[in-house]
Amino acid sequence: MRMEFVLEIARVVLYVVGILAFVGFNASYLVLLERKGSARFQLRHGPTEVGPFGLIQPVADAVKLLCKQILIPKNVDVILFFMAPILVLLPAILCMVTIPFGATIAARNFNLGLLMVFAFAAFNVFGILIGGWASHNKYANLAAARVVAQNIAYEIPTLLIVVAVVMVTGTFNLQEIVAQQAGGFWRWNILRLDLNPLQPVAFLMYFICLLAETNRAPFDMVEAESELVAGAYTEYSGMTFGVFFMAEYTNIVLGCCVATVLFLGGWQCPFGLVPGPHWFLLKMYALCFTVIWVRWSFPRVQFYNLLNLSWKILIPVSLANIILTALMLKVF
């Protein structure tokens, strides 16, 4: 009894430290990947000075952000102003709890893991809204209003697509969803055409929703630097801005993790050999790279076209996807 209790405590501490480290590492090194990647896309060098190939640059960035003064403008609602970055970052970290990195590596194996992920992920928009509102800045207010409309519009297709996947898998347990996809890449959900011929389209739509949910270009209404200066983050400086930044990348990692689990077979190997966390990370980082790649390829979508895309294309198609899945399940 006591032994189990101690082990449980040790497990909790281990996973808390592990997830925090994972989030911190990703947030800082994805920034570096973004800077390096964007530089190479644009035929530039990117950071090279701090450490070999600029590898210690994130440390320098973090030190810089920590040392900077946090400016609190006049008329700001101080409590909400500081709450906002935390409200954005915390849910993303919480969601990491359910992600199965390997057959035995998951902080908590919930039966309703998928539901928890989407419940907490919806918090993200709340934080940005509060931040934009509390800043008492017109640019920030406008951006915050945009973000709410955007995230609500994209929450719906995301969930509809996920519902279709859940209908196929029959479970909300992420570990089980991965386990069902064992045996080779043709068993992954993205290629289960026997269950639903629209599955690759569903994955593509999920990816678009992922970009929009995480406010990434070409859907970066929250920043829209050429229109709204820095959008909802206009008044944030120093580490408060740094936390928003971390949250952005954490949300990307989380979205890519979920996409990997739902569609790309999680930690399963494409050829049925040596499954394990390395496959999970490989797929996840490939998706992260694609997110960055998309950002540096396209201009920003207009605000109303973004909503049009969601309401007029993504939602009808994802509804059709659900009906098709249901039919396929019933008929075959």
């Binding site: 964007s38 896309f41 644009q42 270009a217 070409p218 970066d220 829209a224 630097e225 050429s226 540096w296 390829s297 396209f298 201009p299 920003r300």
Partner: peptide, 8 residues
């Protein structure tokens, strides 16, 4: 293109 949000 920068005005439109595309940097590359």
């Amino acid at each position: 293109l920068i005005d439109l949000g595309g940097f590359t």
